[in-house]
Simulated scan of single mutants.
Amino acid sequence: MVQATRPYRSVLYIPGSKERALEKARHLPVDAIIFDLEDAVAIEEKSNARSLLARVLGEWDFGARARIVRVNGLETDWGRADLATFATAISAGATVDAILVPKVNGPADLDAVAALVPGVPLWAMMETAAGMLNAAAIAAHPRLAGMVMGTNDLAKELGSRFRPDRLAMQAGLGLCLLAAKAHGRVIVDGVFNAFKDDEGLAVECEQGRDMGFDGKTLIHPAQLEIANRAFAPSEAEIDLAQRQIAAFDAAEKAGQGVAVVDGKIVENLHIVTARATLAKAEAIAALG
């Protein structure tokens, strides 16, 4: 299936309890914001964060940035109140592009949330062993629009150690990628915790990009530039895509089924990729 071209190069977590951070996020060069009511909010702040965020999303303009609200799980003391608050806020005009459901183990977890927030697209946090094994069924859910890798929680559940090559994560990352691509869902990579390590972040972004992720979740604004650059088509890729399309069009007019660009065969499948590259570049440019 073909995914939408809306960019998700950078997806920044912002605590829903911090009004100053929410205000700053309106002006950051970020493609999407995850307004977090879960891990980033202390227990004693849960209620205040919920009310603050509902007001902010009803009153403030975040421009072209996608607005995703991560609620607390329904098994907690705060999940149902989160969903009730945002169902009401959305009905009153608050702009929420998706509800992000934590610790999705299977489609039933999405069913439960879908019933409480009708009509709103859902995203799934993929951060449990059960979620990895059920990734295909989760991705097939009719309300699902995106998947987010929760590599920190997954590592905790697996008991795995950090490695720069993320060897322990490869099985889970691969299963979720296959599931997302099979069903045309957006999928973004997990966070890189060392927010002052630019080189390490760049390496992990490049790995995620090369695997096929649409972008990366981030924990600090300082990480935005590296992620935006890594997940955007380069000038060389745009140039190649344009030349492939032109060469293939010329070949077709000449009655040929393939073209040659830079000594390599170009078939229709390469043109599909080339057009997607140009569409992504155009969508990024449109963000301004």
Rank of each mutant, 00 (worst) to 15 (best):
K18L: 14
P142H: 06
V71M: 09
A87F: 00
G79W: 03
G212T: 05
A281K: 07
T76Y: 03
C205L: 02
L269K: 10
S234W: 08
E19W: 02
A84I: 03
E45F: 01
L287M: 15
R275H: 11
N72H: 03
D239E: 14
A236N: 10
W60N: 02
T273C: 00
S17Q: 06
K181Q: 14
A194Q: 13
R70D: 00
I90D: 03
D262T: 07
N152M: 13
R80L: 14
A112Q: 14
K181S: 12
H270R: 03
F35G: 02
Q256V: 07
A54D: 06
D39G: 02
R229T: 15
D210Q: 13
L218W: 01
A194H: 12
R9S: 06
T151W: 00
E235G: 10
L167I: 09
N134A: 15
F192N: 02
A108K: 13
N228T: 05
D77V: 07
M149E: 02
R67F: 04
E267R: 09
M126R: 06
V188D: 01
L178G: 13
F86H: 07
G146K: 11
V69A: 06
I14S: 01
V30W: 04
A281G: 14
V71H: 00
E267A: 13
A66N: 04
W60V: 07
G63R: 10
G263P: 09
D197K: 10
Q170F: 12
